[in-house]
Design a protein around this nucleic acid. Structure first.
Length: 103
DNA sequence: GGGCTGACGTGGC
DNA sequence: CGCCACGCCAGCC
């Protein structure tokens, strides 16, 4: 079965909607949670098209904590929720990554 | 079918 | 921590 944007979009939206305020998830995690490992890139595509959707797409980051190049407001939105950025412009994943099992 | 493009991930240095 | 090379794969031309 070949995953397509259309096939994943609903699950991805649901997962992103579930991210608590002040926490973040990575594209790779979302891809795995949706049941499609190795498709982080596809999740990214979906996020790009979801800018106007009713989901907290600003809480989705790359695995290294780097925010999106084409989404300038992302940083302000996260900081407004208490997420602090490091000097290098990345989020401290150790602190803000949403550990579904933990909390 | 062929080739290039990315809101990606991991591992090596 | 930064940079780079690779691997990955749907979309688009």
């Amino acid at each position: 079965m070949r995953p397509t944007q259309e096939l994943l979009i609903k699950d991805v939206y649901e997962i992103v909607r579930a991210i608590p305020t002040g926490r973040v998830l990575t594209y790779g995690q979302i891809a795995r949670l949706a049941g499609w490992p190795n498709h982080a890139r596809l999740v990214g595509r979906i996020m790009k098209g979801a800018s106007s959707a009713e989901i907290p797409c600003h809480r989705v980051l790359a695995a290294n904590g780097r925010p999106s190049p084409t989404f300038p407001e992302q940083r302000a939105l996260l900081e407004a929720e208490g997420v602090r950025f490091k000097a290098n412009g990345c989020v401290d994943m150790k602190k803000y990554l949403w550990d579904i099992v933990g909390t």
